[in-house]
Design a protein around this nucleic acid. Structure first.
Lengths: 204, 204
DNA sequence: GTCTATACTCTGATAGAC
DNA sequence: GTCTATCAGAGTATAGAC
């Protein structure tokens, strides 16, 4: 499916990583249009022309970041096992999604920026892969509800609620920290809160 | 507190409104840096110099939009009545917040952009007014819990959860619609779902 | 592979005619 | 109040030396 990647030297591999990390930093803060190659090059510690030696254009850097991001983002949902214990599977999904928010907040914000701006570079993936996966898992949830193993709620909105509640801690981190004050661990606290929330919502 | 606004003619008043509406459209989609005066002027149906006749700079347009936005955004929380029925007050708050997401999605996205980018122009307000209001209302929620009138959960994370769940439908509207497909009314459906969610979470 | 220099376009803002 | 013309600076991208 994907084209065989051209072999790259160690230094090429290394520099591409450095650039992508810098680009993630800048794009996630300013969005595609608000980000500049100057900023990315500075964060990466390279000159702008050198950056453009590794990626032909700003667009190409951005695309490289988005490619694969959706997969990473959806993996926790994919991992929800139809054969498992319903409530445990859902709580484990929430836990994994919260781990992503803690470990990859920049990726979360990059994704949020993309959606907020109308998903100009991700629309197809969202209307395709993402939608199909949610429909697939919604069917699993509905079956669990039919079997009386979890309480009945709209399964798609249940998935939305998990996304909203977990990603909020990465995307609105500034606000969360401002309200909670220093010396607290928002995501750790959220873990307990969300476990309570979904347990009470879904216990039959 | 606020300076007396200079008297303005009808046409001035009108054009300022047209510009601010256009700016809301553009800023909410691209963020401050990603938006251009050309775009705003085009949406407003004015020339760029004419736009700059009404606002001295891009920054001033943006500031005019943010000023007052936080107040509008927090009003539903302010309206939560400490003397009311706890669960009804909380559900009414959720309802009002969801109404905002339906009626003012661009304002929601403008706010989301600002926070996502580290709140460079709203930090003070967030660490001041917003934080104090949440602390105030958290105290009310805690009292309700102490009195056994709602179940005990972390009050601040409860507020976060209301923000996350309601704003999600405005900020991630593209994704929500892509998953639900056409011919559905996401926010109307969310109303029922969220009422169930918070009722089950908070019923003692 | 990396740099300096530079071409060219976009963007925010101003001048000045009407 | 509104427009055309224009400027200075920022921004993407390329050329070409090393």
């Amino acid at each position: 499916m994907s084209p065989t990647p051209r072999p790259r030297s160690r230094i090429q591999q290394r520099n591409r990583e450095v650039i992508l990390d810098a680009a993630l930093e800048v794009f996630s803060l300013h969005g595609f249009r608000g980000a500049t190659l100057d900023q990315i090059a500075e964060v990466a510690g390279l000159s702008k022309p050198n950056l453009l030696y590794y990626f032909r254009s700003k667009e190409e850097v951005h695309t490289a970041l988005l490619t694969g991001l959706l997969d990473t983002w959806l993996d926790p949902l994919r991992a929800m096992n139809p054969a498992g214990q319903p409530l445990q599977e859902i709580l484990a999904y929430v836990r994994r999604k919260l781990d992503l928010a803690r470990d990859f907040p920049r990726e979360s914000r990059l994704f949020a920026n993309e959606i907020l701006q109308g998903a100009p570079r991700m629309r197809a993936a969202i209307e395709g892969d993402l939608r199909r996966l949610v429909e697939d898992k919604a069917a699993v949830l509905t079956r669990w509800m039919d079997e009386g193993r979890i309480a009945r709620v709209d399964p798609v909105h249940l998935v939305f609620s998990i996304w909203a509640l977990t990603q909020h801690y990465a995307d609105f981190e500034v606000q969360v920290r401002a309200v909670l004050g220093p010396g607290r661990d928002p995501i750790s606290e959220a873990g307990g809160f969300l476990e309570t929330l979904f347990t009470r919502l879904l216990t039959p």
